[in-house]
Simulated scan of single mutants.
Amino acid sequence: MRRFATLLLLIVFLALVWSYPITVVDDAGRTVTIVQKPERVICAAPSTTKFLQYLGLEDKIIAVTNWDDFEAERIGDLFPINLEKIVSLNPDLIFTFGGFQLPEVVKLEQHGLTTVVLNANSVQQILNDLVLVGIIMGVPEKAKKLANQLQEHYLNIAKKAYNIPLDKRVKVAYLMDIPGPDVREVWTCGQGSYLNDLIVLAGGANIAALFTGPNGFLPISLEYIVSQDPDVLIVASYVPNSEEQIKEKVSNHPILKSLKAVRNKRIYVYDNYLLSLPVPQLVEYIEKFYNDFYGGK
């Protein structure tokens, strides 16, 4: 929250003395100088594309990776990045994700390419990044307005969720995939992940909240899930219109079928593409989660 307030103060200051170059600190803690207003932007991760789309700056995107659903020239995989292709496009700015992409940032800098890392691990950090991108792209007031609207929206839901007694909150398990019959683990979200933040703000009690891993994601055993017996399952979908098939697969799983969530038919399927991205569009899922957890009450 303090960083968000600091960013808003920075916006007010920049509105009075707006000019490039500007210097910002990205999510990798790097100090980055933006020499001029970016007109040619490469989004080297799908999550970064979503920020520009949310700000209505799609026309600034000249290229994306093969994993993106935005129509633009392709630069290849997320890792390793295609340096030759990127250099040939002569971008003003490159947005990347953190984690496994961080080593690629060094390579980009060695080629004189201005690069900003966006790697939010909470809802508030997503809003911070929205404001940061707005500052970088020269639309700070628009970014501030959108961030404030999102914050007001999710806080309205969070306030309702806060009033639910702790012993009445639903226990939630997030399944990144449905394990096969011989697999004993499944990836989920834990402490330090933006998805855990969404679940908590929606009034859920994440069964993996005590654990963490890279960016807050980690594998947990099926035995642990059974021991916690969650009230609700959130399951990621990788294929459009596969909700019923996924529910059936979970219901017939030799281990998962014993769960309270399965017996009570409280399996909720969400598009994994958006679930996997810490972006402004995902903040709206807090309300969807709340409605699934408590029927919109």
Rank of each mutant, 00 (worst) to 15 (best):
W67C: 11
P140K: 05
F95R: 05
P240I: 10
E287V: 07
S251W: 00
K142N: 04
I255D: 04
I255F: 04
L146Y: 15
D77E: 10
D68W: 13
Q281E: 14
G76V: 09
T65L: 12
R40T: 03
T114V: 09
T115N: 08
V133L: 11
K168N: 13
E73N: 09
V172Y: 01
E284D: 14
D182S: 00
N252F: 01
P91L: 02
D92P: 04
V186Q: 00
I164F: 06
E287N: 13
Q245M: 11
P80W: 10
T96Y: 06
T6E: 15
V172K: 02
A5P: 07
K288W: 09
G56S: 13
V200T: 13
I42T: 08
R40P: 07
G216C: 02
Y162R: 12
E244V: 10
I34F: 04
D59R: 00
K249Q: 00
K247H: 10
V269W: 07
Y54K: 07
S251D: 07
F13G: 12
E152Q: 13
A208D: 02
V232R: 01
Q228H: 02
G192D: 05
P280V: 15
Y224A: 00
P21V: 09
L282E: 13
F289C: 12
D229Q: 01
V131K: 05
A209G: 10
K260P: 07
N206Y: 07
P21Q: 13
K260E: 15
N66W: 06
D182R: 00
E284A: 12
K168G: 09
I22L: 12
F100L: 11
L127N: 08
K249C: 00
S221P: 09
F13N: 11
E243G: 14
V41M: 04
F217K: 03
I62W: 03
D26W: 13
P280R: 11
A45Q: 10
